[in-house]
Design a protein around this nucleic acid. Structure first.
Lengths: 197, 197
DNA sequence: GTTGCAAACCTAGGACCCTTAGGTTTAACC
DNA sequence: GGTTAAACCTAAGGGTCCTAGGTTTGCAAC
Protein backbone atom coordinates (compact mmCIF):
# COMPACT_ATOMS: atom_id res chain seq x y z
CA UNK A 1 0.00 0.00 0.00
CA UNK A 2 1.40 3.37 -1.00
CA UNK A 3 2.45 5.48 1.92
CA UNK A 4 0.38 8.55 2.56
CA UNK A 5 3.40 10.79 2.90
CA UNK A 6 2.10 12.69 5.87
CA UNK A 7 3.80 15.42 7.77
CA UNK A 8 2.82 17.60 10.69
CA UNK A 9 1.92 20.36 8.27
CA UNK A 10 -0.31 18.18 6.08
CA UNK A 11 -2.09 16.84 9.13
CA UNK A 12 -2.64 20.38 10.38
CA UNK A 13 -4.05 21.48 7.03
CA UNK A 14 -6.44 18.56 6.89
CA UNK A 15 -7.56 19.35 10.41
CA UNK A 16 -8.01 23.02 9.53
CA UNK A 17 -10.14 22.16 6.50
CA UNK A 18 -12.21 19.89 8.67
CA UNK A 19 -12.61 22.61 11.26
CA UNK A 20 -13.96 25.01 8.65
CA UNK A 21 -16.36 22.41 7.30
CA UNK A 22 -17.81 20.85 10.44
CA UNK A 23 -16.74 23.07 13.30
CA UNK A 24 -13.68 23.05 15.50
CA UNK A 25 -15.15 20.83 18.18
CA UNK A 26 -15.89 18.17 15.58
CA UNK A 27 -12.22 17.98 14.72
CA UNK A 28 -11.18 14.67 16.14
CA UNK A 29 -8.13 12.50 15.66
CA UNK A 30 -10.26 9.75 14.19
CA UNK A 31 -11.94 12.11 11.75
CA UNK A 32 -8.74 13.72 10.57
CA UNK A 33 -7.24 10.26 10.11
CA UNK A 34 -10.21 9.10 8.03
CA UNK A 35 -9.92 12.16 5.82
CA UNK A 36 -6.27 11.34 5.23
CA UNK A 37 -6.95 7.65 4.61
CA UNK A 38 -4.95 6.57 7.60
CA UNK A 39 -5.54 5.01 11.00
CA UNK A 40 -5.88 7.43 13.85
CA UNK A 41 -2.91 6.05 15.74
CA UNK A 42 -0.70 6.96 12.78
CA UNK A 43 -1.22 10.65 13.41
CA UNK A 44 0.71 10.53 16.65
CA UNK A 45 3.96 10.30 14.72
CA UNK A 46 3.39 13.83 13.46
CA UNK A 47 1.40 15.48 16.21
CA UNK A 48 1.69 15.08 19.93
CA UNK A 49 -2.01 14.84 20.67
CA UNK A 50 -5.33 16.51 19.99
CA UNK A 51 -4.52 19.59 22.02
CA UNK A 52 -1.27 20.02 20.11
CA UNK A 53 -3.16 19.68 16.84
CA UNK A 54 -5.61 22.37 17.88
CA UNK A 55 -2.69 24.62 18.75
CA UNK A 56 -1.22 24.03 15.32
CA UNK A 57 -4.49 24.99 13.68
CA UNK A 58 -4.46 28.19 15.69
CA UNK A 59 -0.93 29.04 14.61
CA UNK A 60 -1.74 28.27 11.00
CA UNK A 61 -4.77 30.52 11.19
CA UNK A 62 -2.79 33.33 12.79
CA UNK A 63 -0.21 33.15 10.03
CA UNK A 64 -2.78 33.03 7.25
CA UNK A 65 -4.81 35.86 8.69
CA UNK A 66 -1.74 38.03 9.09
CA UNK A 67 -0.75 37.32 5.51
CA UNK A 68 -4.16 38.34 4.20
CA UNK A 69 -4.02 41.53 6.19
CA UNK A 70 -0.54 42.31 4.94
CA UNK A 71 -1.64 41.84 1.34
CA UNK A 72 -4.77 43.89 1.84
CA UNK A 73 -3.08 46.85 3.50
CA UNK A 74 -0.03 47.01 1.26
CA UNK A 75 0.31 50.52 -0.06
CA UNK A 76 -2.59 51.89 1.96
CA UNK A 77 -2.49 54.60 4.57
CA UNK A 78 -4.86 56.43 6.88
CA UNK A 79 -8.47 55.38 6.77
CA UNK A 80 -7.90 53.21 3.70
CA UNK A 81 -5.42 51.16 5.67
CA UNK A 82 -7.79 50.88 8.61
CA UNK A 83 -10.64 49.70 6.42
CA UNK A 84 -8.48 47.29 4.46
CA UNK A 85 -7.06 45.87 7.66
CA UNK A 86 -10.43 45.41 9.27
CA UNK A 87 -12.09 43.93 6.21
CA UNK A 88 -9.30 41.44 5.67
CA UNK A 89 -9.64 40.37 9.29
CA UNK A 90 -13.38 39.92 9.07
CA UNK A 91 -13.25 38.16 5.73
CA UNK A 92 -10.78 35.67 7.03
CA UNK A 93 -13.02 34.92 9.99
CA UNK A 94 -16.02 34.45 7.71
CA UNK A 95 -14.18 32.28 5.23
CA UNK A 96 -12.46 30.11 7.81
CA UNK A 97 -14.72 29.91 10.85
CA UNK A 98 -13.13 26.77 12.22
CA UNK A 99 -9.57 28.02 11.88
CA UNK A 100 -10.60 31.34 13.37
CA UNK A 101 -12.31 29.66 16.29
CA UNK A 102 -9.06 27.83 17.00
CA UNK A 103 -7.36 31.15 17.65
CA UNK A 104 -9.83 31.83 20.45
CA UNK A 105 -8.82 28.94 22.66
CA UNK A 106 -6.88 29.79 25.80
CA UNK A 107 -3.25 29.33 25.04
CA UNK A 108 -1.78 25.91 25.51
CA UNK A 109 0.42 26.08 22.45
CA UNK A 110 3.88 24.55 22.51
CA UNK A 111 6.10 27.61 23.10
CA UNK A 112 8.85 26.21 20.90
CA UNK A 113 6.41 25.79 18.05
CA UNK A 114 4.93 29.22 18.58
CA UNK A 115 8.36 30.81 18.44
CA UNK A 116 8.77 29.58 14.88
CA UNK A 117 5.46 31.03 13.72
CA UNK A 118 5.93 34.45 12.16
CA UNK A 119 2.24 35.36 12.41
CA UNK A 120 1.86 37.00 15.79
CA UNK A 121 4.97 39.16 15.58
CA UNK A 122 4.16 40.27 12.07
CA UNK A 123 0.58 41.01 13.08
CA UNK A 124 1.79 43.40 15.74
CA UNK A 125 4.05 45.20 13.30
CA UNK A 126 1.21 45.53 10.82
CA UNK A 127 -1.16 46.94 13.36
CA UNK A 128 1.26 49.50 14.65
CA UNK A 129 2.18 50.41 11.10
CA UNK A 130 -1.44 50.95 10.20
CA UNK A 131 -1.81 53.43 13.04
CA UNK A 132 1.30 55.36 12.15
CA UNK A 133 -0.70 57.94 10.23
CA UNK A 134 -2.76 58.87 13.27
CA UNK A 135 0.22 60.25 15.16
CA UNK A 136 -0.30 58.45 18.44
CA UNK A 137 2.54 57.94 20.89
CA UNK A 138 3.00 55.30 23.55
CA UNK A 139 1.22 54.30 25.67
CA UNK A 140 -1.77 55.55 23.72
CA UNK A 141 -0.58 53.58 20.74
CA UNK A 142 -0.77 50.27 22.57
CA UNK A 143 -4.14 51.17 24.00
CA UNK A 144 -5.45 52.03 20.56
CA UNK A 145 -4.13 48.80 19.08
CA UNK A 146 -5.84 46.82 21.81
CA UNK A 147 -9.07 48.69 21.30
CA UNK A 148 -9.05 47.99 17.58
CA UNK A 149 -8.22 44.33 17.98
CA UNK A 150 -10.92 44.00 20.61
CA UNK A 151 -13.52 45.54 18.38
CA UNK A 152 -12.58 43.56 15.29
CA UNK A 153 -12.46 40.31 17.15
CA UNK A 154 -15.55 41.04 19.18
CA UNK A 155 -17.57 41.93 16.14
CA UNK A 156 -16.80 38.79 14.18
CA UNK A 157 -17.16 36.66 17.30
CA UNK A 158 -20.61 38.05 18.03
CA UNK A 159 -21.50 37.67 14.38
CA UNK A 160 -20.42 34.03 14.48
CA UNK A 161 -22.56 33.27 17.52
CA UNK A 162 -25.57 34.88 15.93
CA UNK A 163 -25.70 37.59 18.56
CA UNK A 164 -26.82 40.30 16.17
CA UNK A 165 -30.55 40.16 15.70
CA UNK A 166 -31.76 40.64 12.17
CA UNK A 167 -33.15 44.14 12.42
CA UNK A 168 -30.18 45.69 10.70
CA UNK A 169 -27.59 44.07 8.51
CA UNK A 170 -24.29 43.45 10.29
CA UNK A 171 -22.56 44.76 7.19
CA UNK A 172 -24.07 48.20 7.74
CA UNK A 173 -23.07 48.22 11.38
CA UNK A 174 -19.58 47.11 10.42
CA UNK A 175 -19.08 49.96 7.99
CA UNK A 176 -20.33 52.42 10.55
CA UNK A 177 -18.10 50.94 13.21
CA UNK A 178 -15.10 51.52 10.99
CA UNK A 179 -16.21 55.09 10.41
CA UNK A 180 -16.50 55.54 14.13
CA UNK A 181 -13.11 54.02 14.88
CA UNK A 182 -11.49 56.25 12.29
CA UNK A 183 -13.04 59.30 13.86
CA UNK A 184 -11.97 58.09 17.24
CA UNK A 185 -8.36 57.64 16.20
CA UNK A 186 -8.31 61.14 14.81
CA UNK A 187 -9.64 62.53 18.08
CA UNK A 188 -8.01 60.22 20.58
CA UNK A 189 -8.80 61.65 24.00
CA UNK A 190 -5.83 62.99 25.96
CA UNK A 191 -4.66 60.90 28.83
CA UNK A 192 -5.42 62.00 32.37
CA UNK A 193 -3.04 59.60 34.02
CA UNK A 194 -2.01 60.63 37.48
CA UNK A 195 -5.09 62.71 38.05
CA UNK A 196 -7.44 61.69 40.82
CA UNK A 197 -10.22 59.64 39.32
CA UNK B 1 -30.00 5.66 49.61
CA UNK B 2 -31.28 9.21 49.88
CA UNK B 3 -32.33 10.66 46.58
CA UNK B 4 -30.20 13.51 45.31
CA UNK B 5 -33.18 15.68 44.45
CA UNK B 6 -31.84 16.90 41.17
CA UNK B 7 -33.50 19.20 38.75
CA UNK B 8 -32.50 20.70 35.44
CA UNK B 9 -31.52 23.89 37.23
CA UNK B 10 -29.35 22.20 39.83
CA UNK B 11 -27.59 20.20 37.13
CA UNK B 12 -26.97 23.38 35.19
CA UNK B 13 -25.55 25.14 38.22
CA UNK B 14 -23.22 22.24 38.99
CA UNK B 15 -22.07 22.26 35.37
CA UNK B 16 -21.54 26.02 35.46
CA UNK B 17 -19.44 25.78 38.61
CA UNK B 18 -17.41 23.05 36.99
CA UNK B 19 -16.95 25.16 33.88
CA UNK B 20 -15.56 28.02 35.94
CA UNK B 21 -13.22 25.72 37.81
CA UNK B 22 -11.79 23.50 35.10
CA UNK B 23 -12.81 25.08 31.81
CA UNK B 24 -15.88 24.66 29.66
CA UNK B 25 -14.46 21.90 27.50
CA UNK B 26 -13.78 19.83 30.59
CA UNK B 27 -17.45 19.91 31.48
CA UNK B 28 -18.56 16.40 30.76
CA UNK B 29 -21.65 14.45 31.67
CA UNK B 30 -19.57 12.04 33.70
CA UNK B 31 -17.84 14.80 35.58
CA UNK B 32 -21.01 16.69 36.40
CA UNK B 33 -22.56 13.44 37.57
CA UNK B 34 -19.61 12.68 39.83
CA UNK B 35 -19.85 16.14 41.36
CA UNK B 36 -23.50 15.53 42.10
CA UNK B 37 -22.87 12.03 43.47
CA UNK B 38 -24.89 10.40 40.76
CA UNK B 39 -24.34 8.16 37.74
CA UNK B 40 -23.99 9.93 34.43
CA UNK B 41 -26.99 8.24 32.90
CA UNK B 42 -29.15 9.80 35.60
CA UNK B 43 -28.56 13.26 34.24
CA UNK B 44 -30.51 12.51 31.10
CA UNK B 45 -33.75 12.74 33.04
CA UNK B 46 -33.13 16.44 33.53
CA UNK B 47 -31.12 17.45 30.50
CA UNK B 48 -31.43 16.30 26.91
CA UNK B 49 -27.72 15.84 26.26
CA UNK B 50 -24.36 17.55 26.61
CA UNK B 51 -25.12 20.14 23.95
CA UNK B 52 -28.34 21.02 25.73
CA UNK B 53 -26.47 21.34 29.01
CA UNK B 54 -23.97 23.70 27.42
CA UNK B 55 -26.83 25.78 26.09
CA UNK B 56 -28.32 25.95 29.57
CA UNK B 57 -25.02 27.16 30.98
CA UNK B 58 -24.98 29.86 28.33
CA UNK B 59 -28.49 31.00 29.21
CA UNK B 60 -27.69 31.00 32.90
CA UNK B 61 -24.62 33.09 32.24
CA UNK B 62 -26.51 35.54 30.08
CA UNK B 63 -29.10 36.00 32.80
CA UNK B 64 -26.54 36.42 35.54
CA UNK B 65 -24.43 38.83 33.55
CA UNK B 66 -27.45 40.92 32.69
CA UNK B 67 -28.45 41.03 36.33
CA UNK B 68 -25.01 42.24 37.40
CA UNK B 69 -25.08 44.92 34.77
CA UNK B 70 -28.53 46.02 35.81
CA UNK B 71 -27.44 46.33 39.43
CA UNK B 72 -24.26 48.15 38.50
CA UNK B 73 -25.87 50.70 36.24
CA UNK B 74 -28.91 51.42 38.38
CA UNK B 75 -29.16 55.14 38.91
CA UNK B 76 -26.22 55.98 36.65
CA UNK B 77 -26.26 58.06 33.52
CA UNK B 78 -23.84 59.29 30.90
CA UNK B 79 -20.25 58.19 31.25
CA UNK B 80 -20.89 56.77 34.69
CA UNK B 81 -23.41 54.41 33.20
CA UNK B 82 -21.06 53.43 30.41
CA UNK B 83 -18.23 52.66 32.80
CA UNK B 84 -20.46 50.80 35.23
CA UNK B 85 -21.93 48.76 32.41
CA UNK B 86 -18.56 47.87 30.95
CA UNK B 87 -16.93 47.04 34.26
CA UNK B 88 -19.79 44.81 35.31
CA UNK B 89 -19.47 42.97 31.99
CA UNK B 90 -15.75 42.48 32.35
CA UNK B 91 -15.91 41.49 35.98
CA UNK B 92 -18.47 38.84 35.23
CA UNK B 93 -16.23 37.42 32.51
CA UNK B 94 -13.25 37.37 34.86
CA UNK B 95 -15.13 35.84 37.72
CA UNK B 96 -16.92 33.22 35.66
CA UNK B 97 -14.66 32.32 32.76
CA UNK B 98 -16.33 29.00 32.06
CA UNK B 99 -19.85 30.37 32.12
CA UNK B 100 -18.75 33.27 29.97
CA UNK B 101 -17.09 30.96 27.47
CA UNK B 102 -20.38 29.12 27.16
CA UNK B 103 -22.00 32.26 25.79
CA UNK B 104 -19.51 32.27 22.94
CA UNK B 105 -20.56 28.99 21.40
CA UNK B 106 -22.48 29.18 18.14
CA UNK B 107 -26.11 28.98 19.06
CA UNK B 108 -27.72 25.60 19.22
CA UNK B 109 -29.91 26.47 22.17
CA UNK B 110 -33.39 25.06 22.40
CA UNK B 111 -35.55 27.97 21.18
CA UNK B 112 -38.32 27.13 23.59
CA UNK B 113 -35.90 27.26 26.48
CA UNK B 114 -34.32 30.46 25.24
CA UNK B 115 -37.70 32.14 25.02
CA UNK B 116 -38.14 31.69 28.78
CA UNK B 117 -34.81 33.28 29.61
CA UNK B 118 -35.17 36.95 30.40
CA UNK B 119 -31.46 37.70 29.97
CA UNK B 120 -31.05 38.56 26.32
CA UNK B 121 -34.10 40.79 26.05
CA UNK B 122 -33.27 42.62 29.26
CA UNK B 123 -29.68 43.05 28.12
CA UNK B 124 -30.82 44.83 25.01
CA UNK B 125 -33.04 47.17 27.00
CA UNK B 126 -30.20 47.95 29.37
CA UNK B 127 -27.78 48.72 26.58
CA UNK B 128 -30.15 51.02 24.77
CA UNK B 129 -31.02 52.68 28.04
CA UNK B 130 -27.39 53.32 28.81
CA UNK B 131 -26.97 55.12 25.51
CA UNK B 132 -30.02 57.27 25.96
CA UNK B 133 -27.98 60.15 27.27
CA UNK B 134 -25.88 60.37 24.13
CA UNK B 135 -28.81 61.40 21.96
CA UNK B 136 -28.37 58.90 19.16
CA UNK B 137 -31.22 57.94 16.86
CA UNK B 138 -31.77 54.79 14.83
CA UNK B 139 -30.02 53.31 12.98
CA UNK B 140 -27.00 54.88 14.64
CA UNK B 141 -28.23 53.64 17.98
CA UNK B 142 -28.13 50.00 16.89
CA UNK B 143 -24.74 50.49 15.31
CA UNK B 144 -23.40 52.04 18.48
CA UNK B 145 -24.80 49.24 20.62
CA UNK B 146 -23.16 46.67 18.39
CA UNK B 147 -19.87 48.52 18.50
CA UNK B 148 -19.89 48.65 22.27
CA UNK B 149 -20.82 45.00 22.66
CA UNK B 150 -18.13 44.04 20.18
CA UNK B 151 -15.49 45.96 22.04
CA UNK B 152 -16.48 44.72 25.47
CA UNK B 153 -16.68 41.15 24.36
CA UNK B 154 -13.58 41.34 22.22
CA UNK B 155 -11.52 42.82 25.02
CA UNK B 156 -12.38 40.20 27.58
CA UNK B 157 -12.07 37.44 25.00
CA UNK B 158 -8.59 38.54 24.00
CA UNK B 159 -7.71 38.95 27.65
CA UNK B 160 -8.87 35.40 28.32
CA UNK B 161 -6.76 33.93 25.54
CA UNK B 162 -3.70 35.78 26.75
CA UNK B 163 -3.53 37.85 23.60
CA UNK B 164 -2.34 40.98 25.34
CA UNK B 165 1.40 40.86 25.84
CA UNK B 166 2.64 42.06 29.18
CA UNK B 167 4.11 45.38 28.21
CA UNK B 168 1.18 47.32 29.55
CA UNK B 169 -1.45 46.28 32.03
CA UNK B 170 -4.77 45.39 30.43
CA UNK B 171 -6.45 47.39 33.16
CA UNK B 172 -4.87 50.60 31.88
CA UNK B 173 -5.87 49.85 28.32
CA UNK B 174 -9.38 49.06 29.48
CA UNK B 175 -9.79 52.37 31.25
CA UNK B 176 -8.48 54.19 28.22
CA UNK B 177 -10.77 52.23 25.93
CA UNK B 178 -13.75 53.37 27.97
CA UNK B 179 -12.53 56.96 27.78
CA UNK B 180 -12.25 56.57 24.05
CA UNK B 181 -15.67 55.02 23.64
CA UNK B 182 -17.23 57.78 25.68
CA UNK B 183 -15.58 60.39 23.49
CA UNK B 184 -16.70 58.50 20.44
CA UNK B 185 -20.32 58.39 21.53
CA UNK B 186 -20.28 62.11 22.14
CA UNK B 187 -18.92 62.73 18.64
CA UNK B 188 -20.62 59.97 16.70
CA UNK B 189 -19.80 60.61 13.06
CA UNK B 190 -22.73 61.59 10.84
CA UNK B 191 -23.97 58.95 8.46
CA UNK B 192 -23.12 59.25 4.81
CA UNK B 193 -25.59 56.62 3.66
CA UNK B 194 -26.56 56.93 0.04
CA UNK B 195 -23.38 58.70 -0.91
CA UNK B 196 -21.01 57.00 -3.30
CA UNK B 197 -18.41 55.15 -1.33
C1' DG C 1 -51.86 2.63 56.79
C1' DT C 2 -51.94 0.81 52.42
C1' DT C 3 -51.80 1.10 47.59
C1' DG C 4 -50.66 3.17 43.16
C1' DC C 5 -47.96 5.82 40.41
C1' DA C 6 -44.78 8.96 38.33
C1' DA C 7 -40.55 10.35 38.65
C1' DA C 8 -35.75 9.65 40.09
C1' DC C 9 -32.15 6.88 39.90
C1' DC C 10 -29.72 2.66 38.63
C1' DT C 11 -27.28 -1.19 35.76
C1' DA C 12 -25.90 -2.81 31.32
C1' DG C 13 -24.15 -2.09 27.07
C1' DG C 14 -22.94 -0.27 22.31
C1' DA C 15 -20.51 3.07 19.72
C1' DC C 16 -17.07 6.30 19.48
C1' DC C 17 -12.87 8.64 20.81
C1' DC C 18 -7.86 9.28 22.73
C1' DT C 19 -3.61 7.49 23.48
C1' DT C 20 0.25 4.13 24.23
C1' DA C 21 2.97 -0.03 23.12
C1' DG C 22 4.96 -2.65 20.08
C1' DG C 23 5.24 -4.87 15.45
C1' DT C 24 5.72 -4.47 10.26
C1' DT C 25 6.56 -2.19 6.01
C1' DT C 26 8.52 1.32 3.25
C1' DA C 27 11.98 4.25 1.26
C1' DA C 28 16.31 6.07 1.17
C1' DC C 29 21.12 5.77 1.57
C1' DC C 30 25.61 3.39 1.88
C1' DG D 1 21.89 -5.77 -1.57
C1' DG D 2 21.82 -4.59 3.23
C1' DT D 3 20.97 -1.32 6.91
C1' DT D 4 18.26 1.94 9.18
C1' DA D 5 14.98 5.46 10.44
C1' DA D 6 10.73 6.69 9.82
C1' DA D 7 5.93 5.77 8.46
C1' DC D 8 2.27 3.18 9.19
C1' DC D 9 -0.15 -0.65 11.24
C1' DT D 10 -2.73 -3.72 14.86
C1' DA D 11 -4.07 -4.35 19.53
C1' DA D 12 -5.73 -2.83 23.62
C1' DG D 13 -7.05 -0.01 27.85
C1' DG D 14 -9.64 3.58 29.45
C1' DG D 15 -12.74 7.37 28.94
C1' DT D 16 -16.96 9.53 27.03
C1' DC D 17 -21.91 9.90 25.29
C1' DC D 18 -26.20 8.12 25.18
C1' DT D 19 -30.17 4.58 25.03
C1' DA D 20 -32.95 0.88 26.89
C1' DG D 21 -34.96 -1.08 30.42
C1' DG D 22 -35.27 -2.28 35.39
C1' DT D 23 -35.68 -0.65 40.60
C1' DT D 24 -36.53 2.28 44.06
C1' DT D 25 -38.41 6.27 46.17
C1' DG D 26 -41.61 9.58 47.84
C1' DC D 27 -45.97 11.50 47.50
C1' DA D 28 -50.93 11.37 47.30
C1' DA D 29 -55.27 9.52 47.45
C1' DC D 30 -58.07 6.25 49.33
Amino acid sequence: MARAGLTAERVTIAAAELADEVGLDQVTMARVARRLGVKDASLYTHVRNLEDLRGRIALLAADEKTLRIAEATAGCAGKDALVAFANAWREYAHRHPGRYAATQTPIQIDPELAAQAPGPRRAIELTYGMLRGYGLAEPDLTDAVRLLRSTFHGFVALEATGSFAHKRSPQHSWVRALDALHTLLEHWPPSREGEPS
